[in-house]
Design a protein around this nucleic acid. Structure first.
Lengths: 67, 67
DNA sequence: TAAATATGTAAAGTTCATTTGACTTTTACT
DNA sequence: AGTAAAAGTCAAATGAACTTTACATATTTA
């Protein structure tokens, strides 16, 4: 699962800590999601979409499995 | 988190077991999600969206907190 | 260059998504 | 009414999301 969080953050000049606080998660959670360590929960994805005024699909992109 | 899985299933005349198999999860998982016991993971939500050819937002609706 | 801020990472613990297996209840059909 | 399929539910187990604490590295700024 790829995501555009780092770019969206950069566009607004936000730190990971600021985004974390806006989404009410820890800074490490934001870091881990940006670095692809794990995927956010669906509720957290919705919260991010609301925050950035985008759809979930505009922020998170499912990897289409190329078999 | 509300969702339209039951309706989408009914429109296609699918059982919970059939949807489960299409999404490669257990029947109990579909049942629990439909009954609102828990939210699906983001990857599972993407898979459902792909299956129904809808966006995540068209299937799952975040409860806006009315404080 | 030193200090401050931002980012990356790791371990241990908690909570929740998901599985398996089994059982009960509901719905539909004969 | 009897049967079969579908839906609902429960308990125990596993794994993944997320937290806290703590430290290391990188980047910015005084």
């Amino acid at each position: 699962m790829k995501n555009r969080l780092k770019v969206l953050r950069a566009e607004r000049d936000w730190t990971q800590a600021q985004l974390a606080s806006a989404l009410e998660v820890s800074r490490q959670t934001i870091n881990a999601i940006e670095k692809g360590k794990f995927d956010p929960s669906l509720p957290l994805a919705f919260k991010a979409a609301r925050l950035f005024n985008l759809t979930i699909e505009e922020i998170f992109q499912d990897q289409v499995e190329t078999v």
